[in-house]
């Protein structure tokens, strides 16, 4: 849940990167971390296994500039993508303000994408959220791989509600900041709408 502090003049929001295992959620955050100036970011925390698979979450605090003297601060989280970490995924969605679904564009990962998308919807519902009402964007990652499905097909399958979506190559950063900016903007617009 967003947190507006009138004393420190800060607007704090939480964005969660969701998606199947190995789709590139952590890579998105790592790219953002590497390309952001040190005054705009805090430490990136990765709670990962010895083989660098996300165990609980990655966390990156980021400042995105001031509006009317209020600092906008975004806390970016990733969830562990592997199916059996569902209990942890649920915990991280608590209090979320905006969601990025990172899809793996490879044809053979389509079932995993769909399963993760269903899981996202279910887990949000448990927290009383409706994905269709939440600031939400989709990213089609790994566009550089030869077995990537065509964008149109990805759109049809993974973005039936036609939310903003972006092709991406998280390893080189293509589409990474577009995705982040799009969801951050939706979050602020939604906050404004609610007041």
């Amino acid at each position: 849940m967003s947190f507006i502090n009138y004393s420190s003049r800060e607007i704090n929001c939480k964005i969660v990167y969701y998606g199947p295992g190995l789709c590139g959620k952590t890579t998105n955050l790592q790219y953002i971390y590497n390309k952001t100036s040190s005054e705009a970011k805090g430490k990136m925390i990765s709670l990962a296994t010895e083989t660098e698979r996300t165990l609980f979450f990655d966390f990156l605090p980021l400042s995105m500039g001031d509006i009317h003297g209020f600092k906008t601060r975004f806390h970016l989280y990733t969830v562990p993508g592997q199916v059996f970490y569902d209990a942890s995924r649920k915990l991280i969605l608590k209090g979320v303000d905006g969601v990025v679904f990172v899809a793996d564009s490879q044809i053979e990962r389509m079932e995993a994408n769909l399963e993760s998308l269903d899981n996202l919807r279910e887990n949000l519902e448990e927290h009383g959220f409706d994905l269709d009402k939440l600031p939400y964007v989709v990213q089609y990652n790994k566009q550089d791989l030869p077995n990537a499905a065509p964008i149109e097909e990805l759109k049809n399958l993974l973005n039936p509600t036609n939310v903003p979506d972006y092709p991406a190559i998280a390893t080189t950063g293509e589409g990474v900041f577009q995705t982040l900016k799009a969801v951050a903007k939706l979050v602020l617009l939604e906050l404004k709408k609610k007041r």
């Binding site: 607007i11 509006i67 009317h68 903007k185 602020l188 906050l191 007041r195």
Partner: peptide, 18 residues
């Protein structure tokens, strides 16, 4: 009072137009 009363959609747009 809410800070968001003073903030317009354009202000939010501008934040991301760098």
């Amino acid at each position: 009072p809410s800070i968001f009363e003073e903030i317009t959609d354009d202000d939010i747009d501008n934040l991301f137009n760098d």
